[in-house]
Design a protein around this nucleic acid. Structure first.
Length: 340
DNA sequence: TCGATCAGGCGAGTTACCTCA
DNA sequence: TATGAGGTAACTCGCCTGATC
């Protein structure tokens, strides 16, 4: 059984059909594909390679004629097709080709000064190349910058309230930071502000991995250490994967129930056929024949080693079957018979 | 060309801290 | 006010990959 997952637009091809390990981040909807194969090659694949890393298999490694089922688990509130990355000034080109360079970005120009996590150290300034305002100026700078931010985004009262709450958050964080610094304690963990989280979230939608340049630019824009940005993306990927796993489990559980039910029904049908065999021996004078049905072309063909029924197509109108045939969902069929 | 070494990145697992009911 | 649960930032470890020698 093969499970292909992608984060992104539902109709997109499954990741295991593409030669890519990248997760599509255009939206946070869950798109899950399930392919059941009978060749058992999963066991042969081993533990190395991209498939292990991302749970994705290359399409050319397993070839199946049956298209995988696709389950769309999109969020109730769909993510806008065009996330406001350009407004946020992401440090890399978006799909629209905008927002190249953080300095021209929306927050890129204004976000300086709301560092909630640290007091700038000399090494940080060297490493990040970002001049950080003094601790005492953080809050006022933030309020000034975000008042502009609100005005620029045309926010209403609710937005103003949220921004104010974020300012409080930031102030609290700054206060904690200052306290820790004064006490000479090393800060273990501090909360990111809502703005920082939202900005990182938007960035993650664009790219779920960062190259060093993007990391540095983001860190500068958000006044975070590059390490913090890196850790945030790592944790974000982990959360995404965890969520996917939960969805996978739920889906596979339902799928298992469905297969169990189908198996039960087929067993019942088999019993009926056996009963028919005893009551209508006429049918049993036919040579032993295996009936198979291709789920893709929906043709039932007979295969037999002897007798008149070999290779006959029972879908032709003049041929009838005294019983119903169930179309299996998955089959290791090849479509060699389809061309004929 | 091949192997050893190193740096950097990432996933997985864990810890520690914070918030909230 | 104390407490437990849940969320999450940060850390550690091991593995992989690419660059360099």
């Amino acid at each position: 059984m093969e499970l292909g997952l992608s984060l992104g637009d539902a109709p997109k091809p499954f990741a295991f059909l593409e030669k890519t390990r990248k997760i599509n981040n255009k939206s946070f909807g869950f798109c899950m594909g399930l392919k059941v194969g009978f060749n058992g090659r999963e066991e042969d694949k081993g533990e190395d390679g991209e498939g292990r890393r991302e749970g994705i298999t290359n399409g050319d490694e397993r070839v199946s004629a049956d298209p995988p089922l696709q389950l769309d688990l999109l969020p109730l509130a769909p993510v806008p097709r065009n996330p406001p990355s350009s407004q946020l000034g992401l440090p890399w080109p978006t799909e629209n080709g905008s927002s190249e360079g953080g300095s021209s970005g929306y927050l890129g120009a204004h976000a300086r000064g709301f560092d909630v996590n640290r007091l700038p150290s000399a090494t940080d300034q060297v490493d990040d190349g970002a001049a950080v305002s003094s601790p005492n100026s953080i809050v006022s700078s933030l309020q000034m910058e975000f008042s502009r931010y609100r005005a620029g985004s045309g926010g209403g009262s609710k937005r103003d309230f949220e921004a104010t709450a974020n300012e409080v958050d930031t102030e609290r964080a700054s206060s904690r930071a200052s306290d820790d610094e004064e006490n000479g304690l090393t800060r273990k963990k501090l909360r990111l502000s809502k703005e920082q989280s939202a900005f990182l979230e938007e960035s993650f939608k664009e790219h779920n991995t960062l190259n060093p340049k993007q990391k540095l630019t983001l860190a500068k824009q958000l006044n975070l250490r590059p390490r913090q940005v890196e850790v945030w993306f790592q944790n974000r990927r982990a959360r995404t994967k965890l969520k996917q796993t939960e969805v996978d489990c739920e889906y596979l559980k339902r799928w298992c129930e469905t297969l169990t039910e189908e198996n039960r029904r087929l067993q019942k049908e088999l019993q009926e056929l056996r009963a028919l065999k005893t009551s209508h021996p006429f049918y049993m004078q036919l040579p032993a024949t295996t009936l198979t049905m291709c789920p893709s072309c929906e043709r039932v063909v007979t295969t037999s080693t002897a007798g008149a029924g070999a290779g006959a197509d029972i879908n032709t109108p003049k041929t009838t079957t005294p019983f119903s045939l169930t179309k299996p969902r998955f089959s290791p069929f090849s479509h060699a018979h389809q061309s004929s």
